[in-house]
Design a protein around this nucleic acid. Structure first.
Lengths: 205, 205
DNA sequence: TGACAATGTTACCGATCGGTACGTATACAT
DNA sequence: ATGTATACGTACCGATCGGTAACATTGTCA
């Protein structure tokens, strides 16, 4: 029989069984620390200390640190597509404007001190092993991103949609990374402009 | 008085004082392990074991693990610009062809299983702290890359050289990252094609 | 009131972390 | 042969790593 561990903190649906509060505090703190300072850099002791809980509480809700990291990324994944869908919803039927809105937003986010890039990308760098629980989540997120970008490139009427979709993905990943590498004034602020140039050059004439 | 520690393994210049052989073996092994599996993931014990030396030998040549990591990146830096300069030298006076050659090479390198991206980029992800010795080397490398790309974009006759240079940098970083994220058949194989499209769209007409 | 589930408390585990005190082997010059 | 310096090895350090056993406390709902 499967245990109750590693549940995905079911959103409160009315008066259903409320999820343990400790698990939420732990995940919130882990999210913040893992993202800002890296998964490997943070020990479970620091997480429970900052969350005001104790270590057994952590291991009652999460089977391991690796699985806690995976849960952090699943949360990240949900918020990621929320932001993505916001940009899409802002420009119905206009994929080029959708991309531009998403990229403009990314470009802005990168222009803060101590920007830390994409949690998914960072986790993949930290865990080269493809079977690591955190990396599994990360790779799935990136596959989905690639799928969407290629589809949008096709909807824009690109000559070679797969190439343009991949090009946009490269620009996006480049923005995430160079955002944290260069800080303020870095190349990431030019991501939307370059994407637009690339799109313009890739459309059927 | 400064100690002899953390010397940069002076290339044997005739019969000058040869550096300790242990230091070279240690750096070679550390290079391989740090790059393939990450700096935080590798302990000094594993390094000395694989190098066939002992821990005190490591700490006689390097003041700390962090400084060993920095030495690894300095070595990486030298080899990086060697590859870059090869692409430049292959097409004298033709910056667009130089970029294309460099990017084609990167695209090819990413298309192997277990590709691990750029050691500089990875180190910066592992160490968000700007004062970390490894990160200092990494940031300097990226600043220099940006400088060169912008200069080449200007030499190509771009309308906005800084924007094109930064766009190329984004594509390159995207290739490093997506190369390790997607493995074979990933978006990184399209980096040279997209760069060429972007360049074409950025030239003065 | 009783029962159950969630959380806390305390103390501990073996393994590994980065780093070092200190003795030993080798080579070379005198 | 003996001194001297340099390179290397054995053994160890305290701290931290991820993870657990056993038990006490709390809150909630029946």
């Amino acid at each position: 029989m499967p245990t109750d561990k590693n549940i995905e903190l079911t959103i409160s649906d009315g008066h259903a069984s409320a999820p343990p509060k400790a698990a939420k505090k732990i995940l919130d703190v882990a999210y913040d620390l893992f993202y800002r300072r890296g998964i490997r850099a943070i020990g479970v002791d620091e997480i429970v200390k900052r969350a005001g809980v104790t270590k057994p509480s952590l291991y009652r809700s999460f089977p391991s640190k690796d699985e806690l990291a995976a849960s952090y990324l699943r949360q990240y994944d949900r918020e990621y597509w929320e932001r993505f869908d916001e940009a899409v919803a802002a420009h119905p039927g206009d994929p080029r404007a959708q991309i531009k809105a998403f990229l403009t937003r990314i470009g802005k986010r990168t222009q803060v001190a101590d920007y830390r890039g994409c949690g998914m990308t960072n986790a993949a760098v930290e865990y080269p092993d493809h079977s690591h629980p955190a990396r599994v989540v990360s790779e799935a997120n990136k596959q989905e991103l690639r799928r969407r970008l290629r589809a949008m490139a096709a909807a824009m009427g690109a000559q070679d949609p797969d190439t343009l979709g991949d090009g946009l993905l490269l620009l996006i990943e480049g923005a995430y990374i160079s955002g944290q590498l260069f800080g303020l004034g870095g190349p990431a602020q030019a991501v939307a402009r370059n994407a637009d140039l690339l799109i313009e050059a890739s459309l059927k004439k």
